[in-house]
Simulated assay, not measured.
Amino acid sequence: MKLALYQGPPAQGDPEAAFARLELQLHAAALAGARILVAPELFLPGYNQPELHKTAAQPLGGAWFQRLGAMARHADCGLTVGWAERAGAAVFNAATAFDRDGEMLGHYRKIQLFGPMEQASFQSGGSYCVFELDGVPTGLLICYDVEFAPHVWALAERGVKLLLVPTANPAGFGHVADSFIPARAGEMDMTIVYANYCGAEDDLRFGGDSLIAGPDSRIIARAGRSEALLIAENGPAPESALRSTQLSDFRKV
Rank of each mutant, 00 (worst) to 15 (best):
A20T: 02
D76T: 12
I142W: 11
V38G: 02
F98P: 00
F92S: 07
H151Q: 13
A183G: 07
V193A: 15
G8K: 01
N93D: 14
A28R: 15
R184Q: 15
I111F: 09
R225W: 02
V130Y: 11
K252V: 05
N93P: 03
D203T: 15
G82R: 01
S127N: 12
L247Q: 06
P150Y: 07
Q119R: 14
A154E: 06
S248P: 01
L31M: 14
V176M: 09
G135Q: 02
G102H: 05
G159V: 10
G125S: 09
V38C: 03
V160E: 06
A63M: 12
G214A: 10
A156T: 09
V146T: 08
L113C: 09
A120P: 07
D145K: 06
T167Y: 04
D209G: 07
P215L: 11
G62K: 04
P9Q: 10
D145M: 08
P15Q: 00
A84D: 03
M190Y: 04
G126Y: 06
A168M: 04
V38H: 05
A32R: 15
G125F: 04
D189T: 05
Y197I: 04
L211I: 04
D145C: 10
G207M: 06
G82M: 02
L242E: 11
G126H: 10
F148N: 11
I219G: 04
A223W: 02
W83I: 00
G199I: 06
G102W: 05
A237N: 15
M188T: 15
I192W: 10
D209F: 05
A72H: 08
E85W: 00
A84R: 01
T191C: 15
F148R: 13
G235Y: 11
T138A: 10
A156F: 09
D14S: 05
G235T: 14
L37S: 12
S248D: 12
L211A: 03
E51N: 09
G139S: 13
A241T: 13
S210F: 05
G46L: 08
C129E: 12
L162D: 12
G33F: 07
E227R: 10
N48Y: 15
W83F: 01
H53P: 00
L31I: 12
H175Q: 13
Y128P: 09
A56E: 03
Q25L: 15
G46M: 09
V91T: 05
D203H: 11
A232M: 13
R218H: 14
N196M: 12
Q123C: 11
L37H: 14
S244Q: 06
G224L: 02
G208C: 00
